[in-house]
Design a protein around this nucleic acid. Structure first.
Lengths: 339, 339
DNA sequence: TATATTTGCTAAATCCATTCATCTCGGGGT
DNA sequence: ACCCCGAGATGAATGGATTTAGCAAATATA
């Protein structure tokens, strides 16, 4: 039914020229000495036949495929970090590239085969993404294969894109500072283990550092640091309940992420207290939840989409200077902080 | 640094045979008459050099790339439907294929160029996915290009994978039936407009049909159908408040999706009522939210991952019979229904 | 007028794997 | 001694582009 693919040879024949000429013209090579007339004929022929170059054939010759590989642990999968893919996809599309997406679930065996799969397809570059900022082991790549780490770091000199957690931590505290809180503040989710570098991600400890420094600078007195290991809604609920019971004077609560905050909302509202009138809350991540909550949760956003975008444009640019690129974490103000 | 790619010629040379022989042996062609000895030498050489075929070169010859295209409106992007990608990715990986993922945001111009981009790369098949089940327009594809619609339907005889909304609708009602509810039931989110086919998706009207039929069959009396247009947390909150005010006798609430249920929880708890003691709730989708809620929300799940998986295996199988493939919607029982 | 340049264009090699068409060699049949 | 046959293997064409090297005609230079 549909006609078979048009090749460069077809275009050349219709234009009455060689494939060499057609190729040069269609690729807009600057140094060509072909006539104006030849240009017009080739372009017209290509348009008429609706010519599209065969990427495999071109890639074979040029080693460029306008394709990038995106290898992640569970980024597409997890609703949480899917913004990373979204941004990467958008940036790739804007640069007229496509993206091969592979997920490994963090398994070493799958990681190796995913890497082979993209390498076999001669991708122009690879993004190694991680759901939560952590240290990744990246095997040696063939010479000339560019790569960028997204939401991850790695030993050695790789380029990596991360959220600026330290400044983000400060931003959250500054909300309280701006609203005049100097005491009656509780922090939920600070983790001793993270602090001592046991495991978890670099992100966590930087976020905590930012919080601590800003707290000190603004002279804010912290009534209680409630350290929990799992940062989810359930732990948030339990921990917030405990804080409320033991420290009835709390007027402001800083949660280390939105799921904790979600749990805290439940505990607070169950107790008949009102947000933000009785207790103000600031949190991190800007999870989808934050907008559903009532009142809306003020939170320091994880700029996932921006990060994905940045990673891909870095990969495609010629800025390969090793090191970290920090993407700012914007404050999303809703209604969980009293005026 | 890293050595340059090993080609088939290198393998052949090391094995002391022609590339023809090497190719035949490595591809395990059944009709070959090459000696056992030759087989061993080639296999050994390939292993020693860690040979990996160049997919572009092979694809050029065979027209097969072991790559499939996944074109969606906003699937990766939206946290909601990302299970579709997850499943598709898993199935592709299991079949030793990779997936090119492209997002169009639903814009016709981007749809066309996305299609061209994957066609240029000679994909073996294309999945057209949609975030919410709806009618899609699929342009004519080159002969021999297979395609499957995922969470979408299309005019004509395309193959499509959908959730079994009708049965899902019945499932939800049956939960109430099993727990002996015969009256005091409210339905939230039924949409007149959808019913009249104004727009929205096929999914919605089938879901509603299933609910209605099951309600009738079990002789359950519905006190109020609250029809809302936008199915999000905010509308759910407002609508549930209204129901509670006007129909104080309500003991069971069926929400058409989890975001509505989320809003309903807020309204119910604000009023001092308890779930499930005072009001039981059943909903649809199994959004991530459903597990955060307290008590956990019983909901009929959208089997996104299964659907994605099914779509890809269908694409790769030789079952191309046109028509719909319905994937069952499992009931996820949590604690929002009284015993 | 004879030689050097420039202009406009093309033949052929190349990228790498697959595959069709043959080719060689040794043994069996007559 | 001659032909045939099959096992074992390979040369060369193929797919569709890019790119190097170079040819022929037109123009400029001496």
């Amino acid at each position: 039914m549909a006609p078979k693919r048009v090749t460069l040879a077809d275009v050349a024949k219709l234009a009455g020229l060689s494939t060499t000429a057609a190729s040069m013209i269609l690729n807009g090579r600057p140094d060509t000495r072909l006539s104006q007339d030849a240009h017009e004929r080739v372009l017209a022929a290509a348009a008429e036949l609706n010519y599209r170059p065969n990427v495999a054939a071109r890639g074979l010759r040029t080693q460029k495929t306008r394709t990038i590989g995106f290898i992640s642990d569970r980024v597409a999968t997890t609703r949480f970090a899917s913004g990373l893919i979204e941004g990467a996809l958008a940036a790739a599309g804007a640069a007229d590239h496509v993206m091969l997406v592979l997920e490994t679930g963090g398994e070493a065996k799958l990681e190796a085969s995913a890497l082979e799969a993209v390498l076999d397809r001669q991708v122009d570059g690879i993004v190694f993404a991680s759901m939560r900022a952590r240290e990744l082991y990246i095997p040696e790549l063939p010479a000339g294969t560019r790569s960028v780490l997204l939401n991850a770091t790695s030993q050695g000199h790789a380029v990596s894109v991360l959220s600026d957690e330290y400044t983000g931590g400060r931003t959250a505290v500054e909300v309280f500072a701006r609203h005049g809180f100097t005491d009656g503040v509780a922090v939920l989710g600070y983790s001793e283990e993270a602090e001592h570098g046991l495991f978890r991600s670099v992100a966590v400890s930087r976020r905590v550092d930012g919080v601590k420094d800003a707290l000190a600078e603004h002279g804010i007195d912290v009534a209680v640091w409630e350290s929990v290991w799992l940062w989810d809604a359930d732990t948030g609920y339990v921990a917030a309940k405990k804080i409320l019971r033991r420290h009835p004077g709390i007027r402001a609560l800083l949660c280390m992420n939105d799921r904790l905050a979600f749990g805290a909302y439940q505990a607070i509202q169950e107790k008949g207290l009102r947000i933000p009138d009785d207790i103000s809350i600031v949190s991190f991540d800007n999870d989808e939840l934050a907008s559903y909550l009532r009142p809306g949760l003020t939170t320091v956003a994880l700029p996932h989409e921006q990060m994905g975008r940045h990673a891909v444009s870095l990969l495609l640019s010629d800025d390969a200077a090793p090191g970290e690129r920090l993407v700012p974490m914007p404050l999303i103000e809703r209604s969980s902080v009293i005026d």
